[in-house]
């Protein structure tokens, strides 16, 4: 069984919810990402979503866009991101890693080569933001064949019939976008999320993680009360930006401060 399902089973057995931090590979400097990942795990992260930097991240809000830009300024690529996951796996064989990115870098590398190298590196799942199911038939079947999880987004505007179709293609977990907007937007309505999750659960047995707009411990714990997992990105990337702007380049010190946010959320979620 792959790491994502193992992780989900363990959480279910313990009656806990998944906490999933997102950071951009190579942000603010390539050397910082590995210590950040390990520190996130130490502070209670269950799954790590690692962003593949792209020049045109159209679904991201300003905070995560800047993270992509900082990484690209350091020539971080899909290739170097895969190398990074391999390095992470050298000392962490348990924590699932999901790559989240855009289609073009993956297409440029080639689906087959990407999937082969991702498998070798120890990647567990892939979320390609701009590959909705209609455009992803080939890619999805290759991922399935390689036993990599297909993570899909579900939006507040996704119709019921479409949810059913996406759920039938998805594996691992579903990523529910909690609001109409880009990553890091600020008008999340917990009540609406709760209602939508009830609808989702009627259609699928897959765990549903919720992301976009989760900025503090209170929101994280409110969402965790109704979802199977909480995905946190912009608030971490924003902390990285602050540290980068203050001139901090030391990976371990960045990791310590960024992961502290996850530590706080872990406590808030577990003390439900």
């Amino acid at each position: 069984m792959n790491r994502i399902n193992q992780c989900l089973q363990r959480l279910q057995a313990e009656g806990r919810k998944a906490l999933v931090p997102y950071v951009v590979s190579g942000d603010p400097v390539p050397e910082a990402t590995l210590p950040i990942m390990h520190a996130l795990v130490a502070q209670g992260a269950d799954v790590i979503e690692l962003g593949i930097p792209f020049s045109d991240p159209a679904a991201e809000g300003p905070v995560i866009q800047k993270g992509h830009e900082r990484a690209l300024a350091n020539h971080v690529s899909l290739k170097s991101t895969l190398d990074l996951v391999k390095e992470f796996r050298a000392t962490d064989s348990k924590t699932p890693v999901v790559l989240m990115g855009y289609a073009n870098p993956v297409e440029r590398m080639g689906y087959e080569r990407f999937i082969e190298e991702a498998g070798d590196a120890g990647v567990d799942g892939v979320l390609t933001v701009d590959l909705p199911p209609e455009e992803a038939e080939v890619f999805n079947s290759l991922l399935r064949a390689a036993e990599l999880e297909n993570i899909f987004l579900i939006a507040p505007t996704t119709s019921d019939s479409r949810i059913a179709r996406i759920a039938s293609l998805a594996s691992g977990y579903l990523y529910y976008v909690s609001l109409k907007g880009v990553t890091g937007a600020g008008h999340l309505d917990t009540g609406e999320v709760r209602d939508k999750l009830v609808e989702l659960k009627a259609v699928t047995d897959l765990p549903v993680f919720v992301g976009f707009g989760i900025k503090d411990n209170a929101t994280a714990s409110n969402i965790a009360a109704v979802a199977d997992g909480v995905i946190v990105g912009s608030v971490l990337v924003n902390k990285i930006a602050e540290l980068a702007e203050s001139g901090e380049r030391d990976g371990r010190r960045i990791a310590e401060q960024v992961s502290a946010i996850i530590g706080g959320m872990r406590q808030a979620i577990d003390n439900l």
Binding site: A58, A103, P132, E135, V177
Partner: peptide, 20 residues
């Protein structure tokens, strides 16, 4: 009907835009 010109075109967007 799906917006493709041969292998080109299509609808490569985040799920958040599909319903629009």
């Amino acid at each position: 009907s799906t917006g493709h010109f041969g292998k080109y075109g299509g609808r490569f967007v985040s799920e958040t835009l599909i319903s629009a």
